[in-house]
């Protein structure tokens, strides 16, 4: 599904991603862990070309999604982002109603059929396990929701445009434990339909939700293997040290 080949990424002179090659299978959850500043978020943001927005950056290598190099000139970035949805660290709903938030992606992609939009909004909110909580106040402001609800709204918003990949950049870091467990539950459910890549600094979370885990440090992918193996019997000592909390 996603494959990177010898990716190097620079912020100006800073070498942020060092020669990373890895593969992610469809309908799996892959977690990226590592200390702050290790490049895991930067790496994640390469998959929907979010780093394009930052000036003075440079990329080497190839990033393939569905066997196509997404940095190829023939790629339409807007189309790519429709297929590769993203959920951000902090809930960032638009200053619009709950309904409009979810409908936004459809509307900007030219969907006009109101019935279809309403149906999609309902489906997406259901998929994000938010429908029952908001069905009576769809036209209220998204800011009236709690932080956890807002984050699930952002997931629903991402799901509405029917992506095949869902990128999550520390989606629960700003949430309380109950909201976090709801999000994790949700990730489990979504796995059957989406390929999910999640960045987290919470190792228990990575252990709970992911099939495979990549451990990043100083811009390098130190170890990448099945989550179980990674947490029980890592190959490298650095990984062992990080997981057991000796640093980071």
């Amino acid at each position: 599904m996603i494959e990177t080949k010898n990716i190097n990424f620079y912020y100006g002179d800073f070498h942020a991603i060092k020669n990373i090659s890895m593969k992610m299978e469809p309908n799996t959850v892959t977690a990226f862990i590592g200390p702050s500043g290790c490049g895991k978020s930067t790496f994640l943001r390469l998959f929907n070309r979010m780093n394009d927005l930052i000036n003075n950056t440079r990329l080497e290598g190839e990033c393939l999604i569905k066997s196509k190099n997404i940095y190829d000139k023939s790629i339409d970035v807007d189309e790519l982002r429709k297929d590769v949805g993203m959920v951000f660290q902090k809930p960032n709903p638009f200053p619009k109603s709950i309904f409009e938030n979810v409908a936004y992606g459809l509307k900007v992609n030219g969907v006009k059929d109101k019935k279809f939009i309403a149906q999609k909004v309902e489906e997406s909110l259901m998929a994000a396990a938010l429908w029952d909580e908001v069905k009576d106040k769809l036209h209220k402001s998204a800011f009236e929701l709690s932080g956890g609800q807002q984050q699930r709204l952002c997931i629903a918003r991402a799901l509405a445009v029917a992506p095949s990949v869902l990128l999550m950049d520390e989606p629960a870091s700003a949430l309380d434990p109950i909201s976090t467990s709801k999000i994790e539950e949700l990730i489990h459910q979504l796995k059957s339909n989406y390929t999910i890549v999640i960045v987290t600094h919470n190792m228990q979370q990575a252990a709970r939700v992911s099939d495979k885990t990549g451990f990043f440090m100083m811009g390098e992918l130190v170890e990448y293997s099945d989550t179980k193996k990674m947490f029980l019997n890592p190959d490298k000592e650095t990984t062992q040290n990080y997981i057991t909390g000796r640093f980071g």
């Binding site: 927005l53 992606g105 918003r157």
Partner: peptide
Amino acid sequence: PRAMREASLALGATQWQTIYKVVIP
């Protein structure tokens, strides 16, 4: 906020759509 622009772009909105649907409001 940058997060607003990113959210919009991440949904496949073009830059112009992001400007008039998110930034200006």
